[in-house]
Simulated assay, not measured.
Amino acid sequence: MALVLRYMNNKGSIVECFLAIVHVSDTTALSLKEAIESIFSKHGLSVSRLRGQVYDGASNMRGEFNGLKSLILKENEFAFYIHYFAHQLQLTLVAIAKNEDSVASLFQNVVCLLNVVGASCKRYDILRESQVARVFEALQNDELASGKGLNQEIGLNRAGDTRWGSHYGTLLNIIILFPSVIDVLENVGENGLNSEQRVEAQFLLQMMQSFDFIFNLHLMRSVLGITNELSKSLQRKDQDIVNAMELVKISKQRLQMMRDDGWDLLLHEILSFCEKYSILVPSMDGNYAPPGRSRRKAVGVSNLHHYRVDIFNVVIDRQLQELNNRFTEINTELLLCALCLNPNDSFVAFNKEKLIRFARFYPL
C-alpha cells in the first residue's frame, strides 16, 4: 500500500509528499487501517489531525459501513472522504458495463472483434483498403464533403480499461467502419488459415449483423458520448471545482433528457443504419425471443418493451444512479464551500455565506 500526504506548509503552499510504501498481508479495511496507523505512529503523526482522505473506488475502501474511509471517520469525523472526479466517472462507466448484461455482452464482443480484425497487418490492410474505396466512391457521388482535415484515415484502436473514454472512440469507429469490418470478417471467414479462425470470423459476422448488437452499439455510443465530454473536461489540469460540478450536473440533465425524449431519435437512427446495411429488424410489436432460447420459452414481452424498458431505460437509470452515488451532495457542498478560500485573482471567489457553511463542517 502506498501512502501520500497532502498538506499546507508554513509558507502557505500546498505540498504533496510520498510518505511510505508498505507490504500488507491482506487488503481488508481493518488491515489497511492498522498499516496506516503504524506508518503515522512511526513518523509522529496522528489520524485525529486528518482533514481529508481519498482512495480508489474499491468497496473495501469506500464502503459505507466497513470500508476504510468509514473506519477512519468513526475515529475522526472531520476526515471527509473526497474522490478524484475523473476516477469517479471512470468507476461509474465500469459499473454500468459490469452490471448490465446487454452492455457487458457488447464490450466482450467488441474485444473479440478487435482481436480478429487487428490480428495481422494483412487484415488491417484489407480494412484500410476497403474504407479508402468506400470514401472515394462517396466523394465521387457527392455523399461526403471534401476539404482540409475531412475524411481522415481512422482505425480500430483497442480501448483501455483504465481509460473508459477510449471506449467511446472505439464504438464510434466501429459504426463508421462497419461495412469495411464486415469485409474483413468475410475474408477471414472464407480464407482463414484454419477452421478455428474461420468459425470465429463467421460467428462475429453473424453477431455484428444482428439487431441486438446494432442496438446496443448505438445506445452505448450515445451514452458514452455524453459522459465523454465530461471525462475529457475533468482531466484538464486547469479545471476548477465549480465548473467541474456544473459539468456533472449538465451530464445528468442530458442523460435524463435522453431517457425522457431520446428514444424515438435513437430508434430512428438504428433503423436507418439497419436499412442501409440490410440488417433484419424485428417487429417492435412482436414478442421478444432471447437469443439461444426456444420460442416456447420466450419471455412474454414485446420487442418494444424489451429494447426500450429493459435496456434503454435501465442503462440510463443505472448511469444516473451511479453518478448520484459517486458525486454525493456532502462532498460537493464541501468542495464548493472550500472554493471560497481560493486566493486566485485576489480572492475573487470569497463568499461569506459559503465560509460560514464551510466552518460548520469543522465545528471543533
Rank of each mutant, 00 (worst) to 15 (best):
N243G: 07
A289I: 10
G300M: 04
R308V: 00
A338S: 15
Y307V: 03
Y362E: 01
V116E: 14
V301G: 02
L114E: 14
G44Y: 01
I250P: 03
S210C: 06
S222T: 12
F213M: 00
T328E: 13
F312L: 11
R134G: 01
N9E: 03
R51E: 09
V54P: 11
H43I: 04
F350S: 00
F40D: 04
I182Y: 09
V299K: 11
V181G: 06
L50F: 14
I182N: 11
V281C: 13
E64H: 13
C121W: 03
L114T: 15
S180R: 11
R296L: 07
G300W: 01
M1H: 12
R62G: 01
C340G: 07
S210D: 06
Q209W: 00
G286I: 05
H306T: 06
L355R: 06
A298Y: 00
S105Q: 04
E77F: 04
V135E: 10
R357D: 04
V24N: 02
L91V: 08
L335C: 15
C112H: 10
G147V: 06
L50I: 09
F213H: 04
D212M: 01
P290D: 00
Y55S: 05
K11D: 13
L5T: 06
K232W: 05
H305S: 02
L219K: 05
F273N: 08
G67R: 01
L224V: 02
N287D: 08
E333K: 14
T162S: 12
V47N: 02
N325Y: 08
L19K: 02
G155L: 07
D345F: 14
Q239S: 13
K276G: 04
H306K: 05
D26N: 11
G57P: 11
K249Q: 11
F213P: 11
R198E: 12
K354H: 08
R326F: 07
P282A: 04
H83F: 07
L50T: 09
E200N: 09
N344L: 13
L19E: 06
S278R: 14
V103G: 12
L114M: 14
A159H: 06
Y124I: 15
L139N: 09
H83A: 15
F107G: 03
V223N: 08
T27S: 12
E229Q: 12
A338P: 13
Q88K: 14
A58H: 09
P290G: 00
L150Y: 10
S146R: 09
